[in-house]
Design a protein around this nucleic acid. Structure first.
Length: 311
DNA sequence: GCGACAG
DNA sequence: ATCTTGTCGC
């Protein structure tokens, strides 16, 4: 038997932070199965057993996502107002402005793809300058499986938010931008929704590639974006075969024809999400995500260097 | 039927 | 996600 039993502890520790409301003894199997995902195509006789476990795990993971989805809010639910250039739209009851936007991203080492550096950066919404940053380097035990990204990345990111909250930090973000989709997901519950629900924060999902859902493909979206009737538009809605609107593709930078994919995470409407993404875009990727991406890579390189010196 | 699938 | 190399334009 090649199944990695020694890896069974870490996921249970992660489980409560992920917020899984399925029987805890079953959780280790979740990771076990995901670890075994790649085996399901092998010709070993054991692959049958692994295949059954994969089915069970997928079922449990889907159930967890469905349960958490019950808490999802897809309308504006915040007390601040979105900074706007046309100052005519003053919303009378709300006085507080959006001041701090958070961004999260994770980088990996090519030498050891399980070593991950997570970054949480806080930007000033007006200047788009980084005012605070938070890092964590860990080994991720759960592999990436399309549709289940949150099980891999949510625990470490929630840890960073906790660290900030525990210190009663004045920079705790009012909004979080996530490098992963929100509603644009096979079950309408991507990483951005997952993080939003568990941290109880408004979140926006930003994808740099399209997760193929409901008949949508990268090529058909790009065709749509380059069509004559749309050549002056920089936003096209992502409407699937079912007629559902999953998010929008946005041409966020004139220098790049490749769009970004925006979807609602939690406690925000798609229109508000679009407004905020627009005002935080200096380049193709919105600044909070871009800064988190850059800083996590730099931190990981430094970490690698210092770890090497320790030997 | 097979392949496509956020990071 | 990760690696590469060069090229173009400000």
């Amino acid at each position: 038997m090649i199944l990695p039993f020694e890896k069974m502890e870490a996921p249970s520790r992660c489980a409560d932070r992920i917020g899984l409301s399925i029987p805890l003894p079953l959780i280790p199997n979740l990771t076990l199965l995901m670890n075994g995902w790649c085996f399901c195509c092998s010709k070993d006789l054991q692959s049958l057993l692994v295949f059954i476990l994969v089915l069970l795990t997928s079922y449990l993971a889907c159930r967890a996502q469905d349960l958490l989805k019950g808490k999802l809010i897809v309308e504006d639910d915040f007390t601040w107002i979105i900074p706007s250039h046309d100052s005519s739209s003053l919303e009378g009851f709300k006085t507080e402005k959006l001041k701090y936007i958070g961004g999260v991203d994770i980088s990996f080492l090519k030498e050891d793809p399980s070593t991950a550096c997570a970054a949480l950066v806080i930007l000033d919404a007006d200047t788009l300058n980084v005012v605070h940053e938070e890092f964590d380097v860990t080994k991720l035990q759960i592999p990436y499986v399309p549709g289940f990204l949150a099980f891999r990345e949510a625990p470490i990111l929630l840890g960073l938010l906790d660290k900030l909250k525990h210190n009663a930090h004045p920079f705790y973000p009012q909004l979080l931008m996530v490098d992963g989709n929100g509603l644009l997901h096979p079950r309408g519950f991507g990483l951005a929704c997952h993080l939003g629900v568990l941290a109880n924060l408004p979140t926006i999902g930003i994808g740099k590639n399209l997760h193929h859902v409901d008949g949508l493909t990268q090529s058909c979206v790009r065709q749509c974006l380059e069509a004559r009737e749309n050549c002056d538009k920089d936003l096209i809605p992502l409407i699937g075969k079912s007629g559902n609107i999953w998010g929008v593709a946005m041409r966020s930078s004139p220098s790049s024809s490749k769009p970004i994919y925006i979807s609602t995470g939690h406690r925000i409407s798609l229109n508000s999400a679009i407004r905020i993404v627009k005002l935080s875009c200096k380049f193709r990727v919105p600044e909070p995500i871009r800064q988190a991406d850059i800083k996590s890579k730099v931190f990981l390189q430094k970490f690698k260097g210092s770890a090497h010196l320790m030997k």
